[in-house]
C-alpha cells in the first residue's frame, strides 16, 4: 500500500517561520499537503500537486472569537488548515494577498509569540538557578535529585534563550 501521510520536521517557528512556510509550499507542489502539526513538526497528506502558499498567525482566541476570525481569513481567500495552542495555519492559492499588510501588526504578531516564549524562558531560568542552589546547599538524596532537575532544566533553558534571542532579533529587524 502506498503511504498516504508523512511527517516533516519543523526548524522551530521562532527561528525559521519563513523557511518552514516555504518548505510547506514546496511540499504542496509535490502533492503533500499540511493537515495538522505538532510542536516539532508537520503532518502532510498525499493529494494532487498544487501551487499553494501557507501563512501562520499567533493568537489566543477567546470563546466566540474564532468564528469571526476564521471568517475574515476565508473571505480574503485564506482557508484555515489547523490550529494548536494559539498557532493557526492557513493556506491559499498563489497570488492571494498576504494576511499581514502592515509592519505595525506584524510587530504585534511577533510580540504575541514572544510573550509565551519569554514566560517559558523565565520559568526554566528560575528552575535552573533554584535547582543549582538547592543541590549545592543540600547533601545526600535531596542534592542528587536537584542535580538531575538542574540538568533537565538546562536542556530546556538553552533552547528557550536561543528562541528569545531569535525573537528579539526579528523584532529589531522589523522595526528598523
Amino acid at each position: 500500500m502506498k503511504q498516504s501521510t508523512k511527517y516533516m520536521m519543523s526548524d522551530g517557528l521562532a527561528f525559521s517561520e519563513k523557511r518552514d512556510l516555504k518548505r510547506l509550499q514546496k511540499k504542496s507542489k509535490e502533492g503533500w499537503h499540511l493537515f495538522s502539526f505538532l510542536p516539532m513538526g508537520y503532518n502532510l497528506q498525499k493529494g494532487e500537486p498544487k501551487e499553494l502558499q501557507y501563512s501562520v498567525d499567533y493568537r489566543h482566541l477567546q470563546d466566540g472569537e474564532d468564528q469571526e476570525y476564521f471568517e475574515l481569513f476565508e473571505m480574503a481567500g485564506w482557508n484555515h488548515v489547523c490550529s494548536e495552542v494559539g498557532i493557526h495555519f492557513f493556506v491559499a492559492p498563489m497570488g492571494t494577498q498576504p494576511i499581514y499588510t502592515d509592519v505595525e501588526s506584524q510587530i504585534d504578531k511577533v510580540q504575541r509569540l514572544s510573550k509565551n516564549v519569554y514566560m517559558t524562558a523565565v520559568f526554566f531560568v528560575l528552575m535552573t538557578v533554584v535547582s543549582y542552589f538547592v543541590s549545592e546547599l543540600t547533601t545526600g538524596i535531596v542534592s542528587s535529585i536537584f542535580h538531575y532537575i538542574l540538568l533537565a532544566s538546562e536542556v530546556f533553558t538553552i533552547p528557550c534563550l536561543m528562541m528569545v534571542a531569535s525573537l528579539l532579533y526579528r523584532k529589531w529587524v522589523k522595526k528598523s
Binding site: 475574515l72 494576511i99 502592515d102
Partner: peptide, 27 residues
Amino acid sequence: HGYAVMALVEKETGGEFTIGPATLYTI
C-alpha cells in the same frame, strides 16, 4: 462588519491599498 471594511477599502482605492485579514483583526 470586518469583511465589508476590507472590501470597501479595496474597491475605493481600486486595489491600490489592501488590508489583509490578520492586519484587520489585529487593528
